[in-house]
Design a protein around this nucleic acid. Structure first.
Lengths: 152, 152
DNA sequence: ATTGCTGCAAAACGTTTGCACCTAT
DNA sequence: ATAGGTGCAAACGTTTTGCAGCAAT
C-alpha cells in the first residue's frame, strides 16, 4: 500500500512524537508528494491526487504538506509569486534555484559555498542555522533563441 | 510637495520613457514608500497612507509599487509567507535577511561573496543576472533569553 | 471514551481586474 | 481628442477555518 516505506518510517516517528495521529490519508499524501519530480504547489498535488481517484480532501492535503515540511521530508520554496511550492528532500541533493523572468524556466543548481556563508553569518549574529533560500532571478541572454520566451 | 526630489527625478524619467503618465498619486505613493524604514507590504503602505488622510486608492498603491520596483527605487522581497514585501533601495546598501523562525525577528546583513556567486552561476548556465534573494531561516540560540520568542 | 482528524463549504487573505469617470498629454 | 490613470467594488487564486461526523488511540 505505502510506496515509500523508508520515508513512512520517518513520518510515522515524527507523528508519534508530536501526538499527531497516524492516518491513512496522511500517508497517501506523503506518497503522492514524494512521487513528484520537482516543485509543486499544494493545489497541484490535490488535483493530481483527485485525478488518481483519491478521496483525500483539499484541507487534508494542505495540512499534511505542512507536517511533511516540519519533519523535513519536504522543503518549502518561494519563487516570488504568491504561492507556496514544495519539493521532496527525500534522497535528493540540496540545491538552489535560478528563475528566468523572461521565459519562466526554473533551473536547479548546487553551490557548496552557500552553506558556508550560512554558517558564517549565523555564527556572527548568534543564531542557530535552520534552512535558507537562495533564488537567482535572471534574464535570457538571447531571447530570440529561447523557446520559452514570452515577452515582457 | 514632493519630499524626495532626487528619487522623483528618477521615477519621472522612468515613467516618461515607458509612456506612463506623470500623476500626483504616483508621487504620493513614492514618497510614502521611501519614507518607510524597513520592509512593508502593499496593504500596510495603503493603511499608513489612509491614516495620513491620503485619498489614493488601494489599486493605485499596488500598481505604483510595481512601477517603483521596475525602476529600482524599491526591491521586492519574499520571506516565505505569501506576501510581497517592498523595501527602499534609495540611498541604502544592498543587504540580505535573516528570519528567526522562533521569534520572528528579521535581521539584515551584508555579505559580498553572494554577488560573486550570482555572477558565477549565471555565467555557467548562460543567463544574464538580474536580482537574487537570499534568506536565512534560523532559530534562537537561547530561546529563554529571547524577548521575542513565541513558542512553536 | 476521548481527542484529534476528516471532508465539506464558507471565509479569509493579499492581490488583481472591470468599469465608468477623470486627467495628463 | 485620446490614451492612459483613477477609485471603487467585485472577482480572483491560494490558503485557512468552523463544524459535524468519524476514526485512532
Amino acid at each position: 500500500m505505502i510506496k515509500n516505506k523508508q520515508a513512512a518510517e520517518i513520518f510515522r516517528e515524527f507523528l508519534k512524537n508530536g501526538k499527531n495521529r497516524i492516518t491513512p490519508e496522511r500517508f497517501e499524501v506523503m506518497d503522492a508528494a514524494l512521487e513528484i519530480d520537482g516543485h509543486f504547489s499544494a493545489d497541484e498535488l490535490y488535483i493530481i491526487m483527485k485525478n488518481n481517484k483519491s478521496r483525500v480532501s483539499r484541507a487534508t492535503v494542505y495540512k499534511t504538506l505542512e507536517l511533511l515540511t516540519q519533519c523535513d521530508l519536504l522543503s518549502l520554496r518561494n519563487f516570488g509569486d504568491n504561492m507556496k511550492r514544495y519539493e521532496s528532500n527525500y534522497k535528493r541533493q540540496n540545491h538552489d534555484h535560478l528563475i528566468c523572468l523572461d521565459c519562466g524556466r526554473i533551473v536547479e543548481f548546487t553551490n557548496n559555498k552557500i552553506k558556508k556563508i550560512q554558517e558564517e553569518i549565523c555564527d556572527a549574529l548568534g543564531y542557530e542555522p535552520s534552512t535558507y533560500s537562495f533564488n537567482l532571478f535572471v534574464r535570457c541572454k538571447n531571447k530570440k533563441e529561447c523557446p520559452y520566451y514570452h515577452g515582457n
